[in-house]
Structures are given as C-alpha cells and as structure tokens.
C-alpha cells in the first residue's frame, strides 16, 4: 500500500509506557494533522518512526509503502523516504548549511556518482528564496546561533532539498512569526502532491489555516482518541482539550 502505516504501536521509555496501541495510516497525497496536549507522545511517535534508539518498541509495526522501518538505523529510514522536521533542531558547529545538505544528498547517490555543484547551488538558492532565507545563510554553521524561527525555516529548507516521500513536521510553527508562518506554509504547500504524505504535528489551528489538512487527529495519553475533518482544529481551538479528555474518559 502507498502509505505510511502505523499499527498498534506500543512504545515505552525507562519503563514508562508512552505510546499505547497507537495506529494511524497516512496515504500518499494526504496531509494529516496531529494535535494533542503536552506530553501526550507526539514527538515520541515522530522519533520512534525516525529510528531513535532511546525508545523501547514493545509491539506494533511501522511501514513505508509496505516496507518495515521499525528497528532500522536512522539513515536507512531516511533513505527509505521519511523526513523528520525536528521540534528542537540540533546545532552542528562548523558545518555549513550548504555542505550539510550537500553531504545528505551525496549520501543518497549510488556509488561513484557526484553532485553537480552548479546545479546544486542553483536549486539551493531557489528554495532559499522561496522560503525568504538570506543567501548568506548557506555559509553559516547549521542552526548554530540561529533564532528559533530561523531553525524552523532551515528544517523546511532541508526537507524540500531532500525530497522525501513522507514528511513528519514536529511543531514547525512554534517559533515562527506571523509572516514566517505564511512563507513556510507556502513552501510546504508547494511540496504537496500525490506522491507525498505529511504528518503535521501542531498545537495551533493557525498553521492549519495555511496548510489545510485532509484529516485532523486528536491524540491523548498515547493514542488517537478522535479524528475528523479540518474543521476539527477550529473546534479544538475554541474548546481546548478538556472535552476530548472527558469524551475519552467515557470511552476508556
């Protein structure tokens, strides 16, 4: 199946269970939003899928287009087509953005092939222009001393340069000012298409006004408790999570 499929995923960390029988399917071509209170396990889900080794997977499966990725090394998962825009991007001193993305691209090439530097920079500059990033940024060390918003923009730049089949965006909107939110959303919308699936993790409905999702999921205590159309985000914004908790308590 052409989808990112998570089935009955149970994950714990240091003996504490975080994801509880979590299931979600994102077909290619769709954008799914994931919302839910702090500490519910959204970032855990993102990192487990990306192959972070700190988490214990107790049971369940995660597949990309039918291929298992659970238990694989992070680089293998990346090559399989999963990209994670981090909630807290890491700083890599001394490594320029241009060199980093170039290395990440080179790692995807078959042995012996090299990157055409002229074409590479042309594409990089185009994408930076689209995200309204100053071209001077290419020479700066990756995320080193970047403002919160600059880091998030840089995540989306990497995402668009690496052309993944599935994009997981963990709170990309937090830290972005109103104008930046618009620009970054436009960048993401340009990437939308039948060949790509998105999981957009956010707390705020405002992002979903720009990146309009096909489905909105509400997560609570390690699993999805409610799913609905884009309008669900408005409802959440208006009512908060309490009503979810209440309805969840009755279904539990």
């Amino acid at each position: 199946m052409n989808a990112l499929e998570i089935k009955n995923l149970n994950v714990s960390i240091e003996g504490q269970s975080i994801l509880k029988d979590f299931s979600l399917t994102i077909p290619k071509g769709e954008v799914h939003a994931l919302m839910g209170p702090n500490g519910t396990g959204k970032s855990t889900l993102a990192k487990v899928m990306a192959g972070h080794e700190d988490y214990q997977v107790e049971s369940g499966t995660v597949t990309l287009d039918g291929e298992n990725i659970l238990g694989e090394e992070p680089d293998v998962i990346a090559h399989a087509g999963l990209f994670l825009a981090f909630q807290y991007p890491l700083e890599i001193p001394g490594v320029s953005i241009a060199n980093f993305i170039r290395a990440a691209r080179a790692a995807r090439l078959p042995n012996g092939e090299t990157i055409n530097a002229v074409e590479y920079y042309k594409e990089l500059y185009e994408k930076m222009d689209a995200l309204k990033m100053d071209r001077k940024f290419t020479a700066r060390s990756l995320n080193d001393g970047f403002s919160g918003g600059e880091k998030k923009r840089c995540e989306i730049l990497q995402m668009s340069m690496l052309d993944p089949a599935y994009c997981v965006m963990d709170e990309t909107d937090s830290g972005l000012d109103i104008d930046a939110l618009k620009t970054v959303s436009e960048g993401v919308n340009l990437m939308r298409g039948p060949e790509r699936g998105f999981l957009v993790i956010t707390h705020y409905q405002r992002l979903l006004d720009y990146i309009v999702p096909d489905v909105v999921h509400v997560m609570f205590d390690g699993r999805i408790v409610h799913s609905g159309p884009a309008e669900l985000a408005h409802e959440l914004e208006a009512k908060g999570y309490d009503w979810v908790k209440e309805s969840f308590a009755t279904t539990a």
Binding site: G51, A104, A107
Partner: peptide, 10 residues
Amino acid sequence: FYMMQRGLSE
C-alpha cells in the same frame, strides 16, 4: 541522530 535522520551514516 539528527544528522543520520538526514541520511548520513554514523
């Protein structure tokens, strides 16, 4: 982990 997520080997 961050760098490997971008496709680089360890």
